[in-house]
Simulated scan of single mutants.
Amino acid sequence: MSTAEPFERIYQRACERKGGARALAALLTPTVSDEQIARLPDNLLLGELTKKVFQSGFVWRVVRQKWPGFCEVFFDFDIEKMLLMSDEMLEAKARDERIIRNAAKVFTIRHNAMMIDDIARAHGSFARFIAQWPASDIIGLWAYLKQHGARLGGNTGPYALRAIGKDTFILSSDVEAYLRATKVFDGGLNSKRSLGQIQQQFNLWQHQSGRSLTHISQIIALSVGENVVGMQR
């Protein structure tokens, strides 16, 4: 049986650890409306998916430093141009010193461009599809990206969604530790049953607090673990 606390208790603990409500608020990611997301160009979304694919298992700082090179090599992730790239062209680009040379990850760009193009044909744009997906079933969107995209499983898809402003929680190590300690789930982290239990708990916390899933997730992470910088003593 879950022993998860009411969200107000989690929030108050985070405030105490981080130096008060104002200091805590400064650490939270600004929220973006679904209307704003729906207006984003699909090439920007492909770029964010690609950035997170390359950051997965790698030093994020290095990917950020190389990012202007990625945009040059891949034509700012123009969807039509990505769809026209042959295997030989992708292999050549994977050897370009302006990017991180990982051929397997380079090939995901075309695959994910194909996913975006298919969705855009059905929904008007990939951005609109993302924007219209309900946050109350964000794990369903994670599953969709994992099934139809390339290398978007685990936390890669959620981090990409967070980067474009889509409201989503992230199962970081601190969040996972809290959810396990309070028995929100007791199986494998990425099993369908566990994710359903986690989504249900986040929906409850959202009902209690009126906050975004993004902020709830971040506040939980800041309320536990060893991140006590600024904690009042």
Rank of each mutant, 00 (worst) to 15 (best):
S191D: 13
Y178W: 10
P6K: 07
T108A: 14
V53C: 09
V73K: 01
G225A: 01
E35V: 05
M115W: 00
K192I: 12
S212G: 08
V175P: 04
N112W: 02
L141A: 02
V184W: 01
S2D: 03
I216Q: 02
R9W: 05
M82C: 11
Q232T: 15
I139W: 04
A4H: 01
D117G: 11
R95V: 10
Q232V: 09
I99V: 15
G20P: 08
L222N: 05
S56P: 05
S223Y: 03
E176K: 01
E88G: 13
P68W: 06
G188D: 12
R101D: 10
A160E: 07
K66I: 05
G140T: 03
F58E: 10
A103R: 11
G157V: 06
E48S: 14
N155Y: 05
A92Q: 13
T214R: 00
G196A: 08
K166A: 01
T168Y: 02
K183L: 08
T31L: 07
S125A: 13
Q201W: 00
E88F: 06
T156L: 09
G69V: 09
T156P: 01
E88K: 12
K81T: 10
R121L: 12
L28H: 04
Q232D: 08
A150C: 07
Q147R: 14
A25V: 07
K52L: 11
G196P: 09
A104H: 09
K192P: 09
Q201S: 05
A94V: 08
R98N: 09
N43T: 09
A104K: 14
G157H: 00
R162T: 09
I219V: 13
Y144E: 03
T3K: 00
N43L: 12
T108N: 07
L83P: 13
S191C: 13
G153K: 06
L49W: 08
R121F: 03
H148R: 15
S136A: 15
L204V: 14
E72H: 08
G154N: 09
S217W: 00
T214W: 03
S212N: 06
H207C: 02
E176W: 00
A131Q: 12
N227Y: 06
A104E: 08
D34A: 15
H207V: 09
Q147H: 07
Q65T: 13
G230T: 06
S173C: 05
K18T: 07
S217L: 01
A163W: 03
D117F: 10
P134E: 05
D186S: 15
G19F: 00
G225R: 03
L145I: 07
K192R: 13
V73Y: 00
W133H: 04
G20Q: 04
